[in-house]
């Protein structure tokens, strides 16, 4: 296995929890003693309902925290898929939320995972779990961490008043991981 250098874009609608998903991956990386950076989009691109964040997880010190040449895309809605699949490197990992993205990705130059993230979240009773389903799927598909390492980081990114929902978040992560063969 080569040196770890995950250049991740997580993107979706505002409210789908893309920033939190990025944070969860970042905390997991920090507790696994990896170099990591997280940066949200905070410029004009966040107007108009889409949100994204960039996460870099690396064995080396992180160079640019801003990802211009991603090798991982987690797209939770269609505009995000169509915008960022254009800049994916060859051999990348693409996970897209097939529950609400009704088109196939045009990009087919690496590993493509169709994940019914919103459906799985709805089955668990809360569409806001979509991000956790996607996190579980990403970790399973990439093998960057163990699912247990991801689960251990959950309490660090969920504010205390929602800690009663931790078991449900963990269930969503496990369902997301199980959806990846």
């Amino acid at each position: 296995m080569g040196k770890l250098n995950e250049k991740i874009i997580v993107a979706g609608f505002g409210g789908q929890g893309v920033l939190l998903l990025g944070k969860l991956l970042s905390y997991t990386a920090m507790y696994s003693d990896k170099n990591v950076s997280w940066i949200p989009s905070y410029g004009p691109e966040m107007r108009g309902g889409t949100a994204n964040c960039n996460v870099v997880i690396s064995d080396e010190p992180v160079g640019s925290p801003i990802v211009t040449e991603p090798n991982v895309l987690i797209a939770l809605n269609r505009p995000s898929l169509e915008k960022f699949e254009q800049i994916l490197e060859e051999g990348s990992l693409l996970i897209y939320n097939s529950s609400i993205i009704e088109v196939e990705p045009k990009w087919n130059n690496g590993k493509v995972i169709s994940l019914a993230a919103s459906d799985i979240a709805n089955e668990l009773g809360n569409p806001r779990l979509t991000n956790m389903v996607a996190a579980g799927a990403y970790v399973k598909a990439s093998g960057v961490f163990t699912i247990q390492e991801l689960i251990d980081a959950v309490p660090h990114v969920i504010s205390k008043r929602f800690h009663n929902l931790i078991p449900l978040n963990i269930e969503a992560i496990e369902k997301g991981a199980a959806a990846v063969s």
Binding site: K23, S26, V36, S37, W38, I39, Y42, P65
Partner: peptide, 10 residues
């Protein structure tokens, strides 16, 4: 700069 201000790192 804006990136250092907005980004999170350990």
């Amino acid at each position: 700069d804006g990136a250092l201000g907005q980004m999170m790192e350990p």
